[in-house]
Structure formats: structure tokens, C-alpha cells
């Protein structure tokens, strides 16, 4: 430690001690000054060590992640930027229908799970009386969030595909994904609502608003930036999910025709009862039962596209979250 460092240390030590004395704590002044100084030095050293160790750990994790993403993007990059690959049918080695299916499935999933989870989170944070029943519900939601996705998928297969007779279909996939997504969304929204300062709620009540009005007009607007960020991030997870879809949305991607508006036909893109393989399922299928010759290249291209989409989701979540935050607090 250099001289100037030491001087800085002493100065930094002196300030809080002076404060403590005026704060009527006599203990600090009673303590031997040398002991205090050496303790401060030791605390400082262990702080440096801890910072160093943590920095290295974080560095390793970051490096691994970045390397993985870069590798995936690099190995499929050229394929990914090929327009015909992105638009043609799987029979021609493309992934056009898979891209549409992934987005459509995501949209349907959010359409079902967003209102459900919003309602559940509002109920749990605002209305549910604290008691055994509420605790039980919260635990169930937590358990649901740690269900392996293949279990969710097989459950969806038994219930939606077989029992309800929906066959392999987008709607069966969307329902399975909702089960998979719901607990996470409920948590995210619950946390966002709980993070709204208590004073805001009091303000609403003191203005003569009912609990419902307070929730809708005060709590939700305050929580909206966090809610939107959470929803987009969970969308990323859903987008990349494969196991829950293999036995629900199915593994075939019939060619779709955007001019077909007969929603009972298998080639109508909006038909929710047609089987629809997504990008992630496509990757899985290519690698497990590839029949095409350049399966590896197609799989790499698909993976690159999938990762790029998820990156975009994450960046969007940040930008939109921050913009909304700014809108709520300033501007």
C-alpha cells in the first residue's frame, strides 16, 4: 500500500467515526484508535480479494456465454442470411413455415397466458387473504414453474391431443406452453406489483378509490415497465422451447399458403388446429432423425436464427422497459 493510499484510508475512516460520535454512540471513540485502523485495513483487504474472485468468476461465465453465442451465430450465420433459406419450405431445405409457426405459437401463448397471469398476480398480491390457502396456491405455482418441460409436453399430449381430440395442433402447443409459462409470468407480475411503493396504494385509498380502482389506475401503471420487461423475457424462453411442443404442436410443418383464409384448411396459416413444427423442434428433429443430406448445415442455420431472435427479444425488453420507465417517471 502506498503512502497516499494510506492517507486516503485514514481520511475515509475518520469521517464515519466523527459522524458516529455526534450520533451519540460513544463506543467508537472508546475503541483504541490503532485497533480500529488495523481492522479497517483488514476489512479493506478482504474486500479487495472478494471483488477480485467475483470478477474472475463473472468473467469466466461471460466468456463462456459469449463464446457459445458467437459460435452458434458464426457456424450458421451465412445460412441464416440466405433469404431463400428463411422463406422456403422444409422439403426444399428451408425454414419458412417454422419461423411463422414459432411466432404464431408465441403470440397465441401470450394471448392465453397474459390475462390469466395478470389476473392471478393481482389476486394474489391484492385480494388473497394471507392464510394457508394462499400459501398453498403460491407453492403450487412455484412447483409448476419447476416442472420439466418434457413432463408438461407429455401431459399436454394426453390431455389436449388425445383427451380433447385436438390432434397435434398449434392450440395444443399453445396450451402446453401456457402451462409452462404461466408460473413464471405470475411471479414476474407479482414481483412487479409488490415493488410498487406502499405509499402509492395508500394514496389511492386516501383519494376515495376502491381497491380495484387503485390496482388498475395506480399499481398497474407503476408496474408496467417491469411487467413488460418480464413478459418479453419469458417470451424468449417460450420461443426456444422444444420438449413441451414435440408431442403437442407436433413435428411436421405442412406448407402454408398466406392466400388461404379458410381456417379449417391445413395450409391456412391462421388455422389453430393444424400441426405446426417450430424452430426449436425443427432443430431437434434434424439432429435426431435427419433424412435430408445437409441436415447439419440446416440445423446450424436454424439455431443461429433462433439465437438471433432471442437476442433481439432481450434487447427489445431492455429498450422498451427503459422507455416505459422513463415515460412513467419523467418526460
Amino acid at each position: 500500500m502506498t503512502r497516499s493510499d494510506k492517507a486516503a484510508t485514514n481520511a475515509a475512516d475518520a469521517a464515519p467515526r466523527a459522524g458516529a460520535q455526534t450520533g451519540a454512540t460513544r463506543a467508537a471513540s472508546a475503541m483504541d484508535a490503532d485497533t480500529a485502523a488495523s481492522m479497517a485495513r483488514r476489512a479493506r483487504r478482504s474486500d479487495h480479494v472478494a471483488t477480485g474472485v467475483l470478477a474472475v468468476l463473472v468473467g469466466v461465465v461471460c466468456l463462456l456465454t459469449v463464446a457459445m453465442v458467437v459460435y452458434i451465430l458464426a457456424s450458421g450465420g451465412t445460412k441464416m442470411l440466405d433469404w431463400s433459406f428463411l422463406t422456403s419450405n422444409p422439403s426444399d431445405g428451408g425454414i419458412g413455415p417454422e419461423i411463422f409457426n414459432s411466432f404464431y405459437l408465441l403470440f397465441l401463448t401470450l394471448l392465453i397466458s397474459l390475462p390469466l397471469s395478470l389476473g392471478a398476480a393481482i389476486f394474489l398480491t391484492q385480494y388473497a387473504p394471507s392464510g394457508p390457502v394462499t400459501t398453498c396456491i403460491k407453492t403450487i405455482i412455484e412447483v409448476l414453474s419447476s416442472l420439466p418441460s418434457i413432463v408438461v409436453g407429455l401431459f399436454g399430449f394426453l390431455v389436449f391431443v388425445i383427451k380433447f381430440g385436438w390432434q397435434f395442433s398449434i392450440i395444443a402447443g399453445a396450451c402446453a406452453l401456457t402451462m409452462f409459462n404461466l408460473p413464471i409470468m405470475v411471479r414476474v407480475i407479482q414481483q412487479a406489483l409488490e415493488a410498487v411503493p406502499r405509499g402509492q396504494r395508500d394514496a389511492g385509498l386516501a383519494m376515495g378509490l376502491t381497491r380495484w380502482e387503485t390496482t388498475i389506475h395506480v399499481l398497474i401503471p407503476s408496474a408496467i415497465p417491469a411487467i413488460v420487461t418480464g413478459v418479453i423475457l419469458s417470451a424468449g424462453r417460450v420461443f426456444g422451447e422444444a420438449a413441451a411442443l414435440i408431442y403437442t404442436a407436433g413435428q411436421s410443418a405442412p406448407a402454408i399458403d398466406f392466400t388461404n383464409f379458410d381456417i379449417t384448411s391445413a395450409s391456412c396459416p391462421w388455422n389453430v388446429f393444424r400441426p405446426a413444427e417450430t424452430l426449436a423442434v425443427h432443430i431437434w428433429k434434424l439432429n435426431s432423425e435427419s433424412v435430408v443430406t445437409d441436415a447439419a448445415a440446416i440445423s446450424a442455420g436454424t439455431a443461429a436464427f433462433l439465437v438471433a431472435c432471442i437476442l433481439v427479444f432481450n434487447i427489445l425488453a431492455r429498450i422498451i422497459g427503459r422507455a416505459l420507465e422513463k415515460k412513467v417517471t419523467a418526460a
Partner: peptide, 16 residues
Amino acid sequence: LRTRVGMVFQRPNPFP
């Protein structure tokens, strides 16, 4: 009642 009796809190709490 709460329109006849207003309340101001310790921490300012404007609506968002």
C-alpha cells in the same frame, strides 16, 4: 368520507 377528508403522507406519493 375520503373526499371530505383528504390525507397527505410522509413520503410524497404522486400517481404515475
